[in-house]
Every structure is written in structure tokens, then in C-alpha cells.
């Protein structure tokens, strides 16, 4: 993002802080989420997102194939890291939420977790990434849609279509007059709001976090103006930009936490939805 911010700052002209007649600070806009396409053919375009997606596949599969190609009973360091990842998804996410059948859905959950984690982390990888893939709406939408279709199919197959939708529409154990209010709410919240928030939560966190970082970086570049007409003001501008970069690094650390957390939350919600579909509603 710093590169983008630098471009933005440069586009401001040779102004900068404390330079009279400068264009003033232009914060980064949503345009930084639309890198120009590299190759275009028809409706498809290969952009930075596409490249990073491919890199995501390479990184995830590379890590897992490298760590699990020669597995031993007594694990090496990297193998135990991979096993910890697997056991984390299985024991912390799949089994508590789905129950005994949770092990069957571990491949889906582990795929989602590591894919989203790597895609998020591209936002803080300098030079290569600096653009979280999940900050493009399309990727979370695809993933949430897959999950949405998946848990509905699981629910229909496990409980039977009629019973499954009856349980969603008419929550069992409620006096019938409440259905007048409850049924529309349930339909909206379960069948519409659920997948939408599932996708948008991930997207919005990554989008907002990235915009925040870009703003800090752009502000840092904007305020860095040692060549101001007044030497004292130039020194002050350097101090100001130092604060901005300090904020940038602090929020970068925060972003890393949020990126991991959002990947975890996405997977956890996926597991909860699947668990709700596998087990009949109580």
C-alpha cells in the first residue's frame, strides 16, 4: 500500500505539508483496490488479485506438501507445525461445533482457513502483495456462496428437505402465534443475512483495515517535507510523518491479528452453520 500511497502523494504535486500553494492532503480512495488489469480477455481480466490468488494456491499447497510429504511418527519441527494446524481446525473448530461427524468436514474447513489466512496476509507482505485478496468482494462472496450451498445441501441430505426447511421456517417449540413474527425473521436471518454477513464481514474487515493502513502510509508520505520553505517547519513535518509511520506499524501489527481472527471467525461460522444443518434443530 505504501507504493500506492507514494503514487498518490506524488500525484499531489510537489506540494506537501507546509508548502504554500500545495494541493493539500488527498487521502487514499477506494481506487487503490482496483489495480489496473495486466491482461484482459473478454469478461476476464488478470489483475494483481489473480496473481495473488495463484500465489496463494502455491503458498498453501507448497507449505502443506513440503511438511507432509515425508511424514514421520516422531515429527520434525515443520511437520509438527502442520499437525498443529490440522489439530487446531479439528479439535477447536470442527469437533466442538459439528460434533462426532465433524471430522468429515475438516478438509473443507482447513481449506477455507488456510486459504483465507494467506489471502489476508498478502495485505501486509511488502513488495509482492500489499493488497489483501479478500478485500476484493468477489473472493469472499465466492467462498461464502460455496459454504452457503454446502450447508444447505448437507442439511437437506441429513434431515430431508421438507423437515429441514420446516425447522428453519417454523422453529420447533414455539407457540404458533409467534410464527407470524418469527418466520419472516428466521427466513431473512438464516437464508439471506447469514451468507451476506458471512461474506461481507471478511471483506469489510480487510477492506477497512487496508484503507486504514493506506491512509497512515499516505499521510506519512504527505507530511514528510523536509524541503519546506521554513527549515523549522520542515523538521516538524519530519516528526509528524514519523508519528504517522509509527501508527502505520502499530496498525500493521493489529491488522495481522485481525487477519488471523477473521480467517478463524469465517471458518468457525462455517462450522457452526454446517453443525446446525447436520444436527436437527432442538
Amino acid at each position: 500500500m505504501s507504493a500506492n500511497a507514494h503514487v498518490l502523494a506524488a500525484e499531489d504535486g510537489d506540494g506537501g505539508l507546509f508548502t504554500p500553494g500545495g494541493p493539500g492532503f488527498a487521502p487514499p480512495t477506494t481506487d487503490i483496490f482496483f489495480p489496473p488489469p495486466i491482461v484482459e480477455f473478454g469478461p476476464f481480466a488478470i489483475s494483481k488479485y489473480t496473481v495473488l490468488l495463484a500465489l496463494t494456491v502455491v503458498v498453501v499447497l507448497g507449505f502443506w506438501f513440503a511438511t507432509t510429504s515425508k511424514m514421520k511418527l516422531v515429527p520434525s519441527r515443520w511437520q509438527s507445525v502442520a499437525e498443529m494446524g490440522y489439530l487446531f481446525i479439528r479439535d477447536q473448530v470442527a469437533r466442538p461445533t459439528i460434533g462426532k461427524q465433524g471430522d468429515r468436514y475438516v478438509p473443507l474447513l482447513i481449506t477455507l482457513f488456510f486459504m483465507i489466512l494467506v489471502m489476508n496476509l498478502w495485505g501486509v507482505v511488502p513488495l509482492v502483495g500489499q493488497l489483501p485478496v479478500t478485500a476484493n468482494t468477489a473472493v469472499p462472496i465466492v467462498l461464502a456462496l460455496i459454504v452457503y450451498v454446502f450447508w444447505n445441501v448437507v442439511g437437506i441430505r441429513k434431515q430431508g428437505g421438507w423437515r429441514y426447511f420446516r425447522d428453519i421456517l417454523f422453529m420447533p417449540g414455539v407457540p404458533w402465534p409467534f410464527y407470524i413474527i418469527l418466520t419472516p425473521i428466521e427466513v431473512i436471518s438464516t437464508l439471506i443475512v447469514r451468507p451476506v454477513t458471512h461474506a461481507v464481514r471478511l471483506f469489510a474487515n480487510m477492506f477497512a483495515g487496508h484503507l486504514l493502513l493506506a491512509t497512515f502510509a499516505a499521510a506519512g508520505f504527505y507530511m514528510f517535507n523536509p524541503g519546506a520553505p521554513d527549515a523549522l517547519l520542515g523538521a516538524v513535518s519530519v516528526v509528524f510523518s514519523g508519528f504517522a509511520f509509527l501508527g502505520f506499524f502499530a496498525f500493521t501489527l493489529l491488522e495481522i491479528v485481525i487477519m488471523s481472527l477473521q480467517a478463524f471467525v469465517f471458518v468457525l461460522l462455517t462450522a457452526v452453520y454446517i453443525g446446525g444443518a447436520v444436527e436437527p434443530a432442538h
Partner: peptide
């Protein structure tokens, strides 16, 4: 701790839905 943490994140996700709708 385990089940409670799970429920915390679940509750957070449900509560957050409103803010996400506002964002959208």
C-alpha cells in the same frame, strides 16, 4: 474456556452483522 470462547466468537459474529449491513 473452549465452549465459551466459541460462543463468544459466535455472539460477536451475530452482533457484528448489523454493523456490516450498515457498512454495505
Amino acid at each position: 474456556r473452549g465452549p465459551l470462547q466459541l460462543n463468544i466468537y459466535l455472539g460477536m459474529a451475530l452482533v457484528e452483522a448489523l454493523a456490516i449491513l450498515g457498512f454495505v
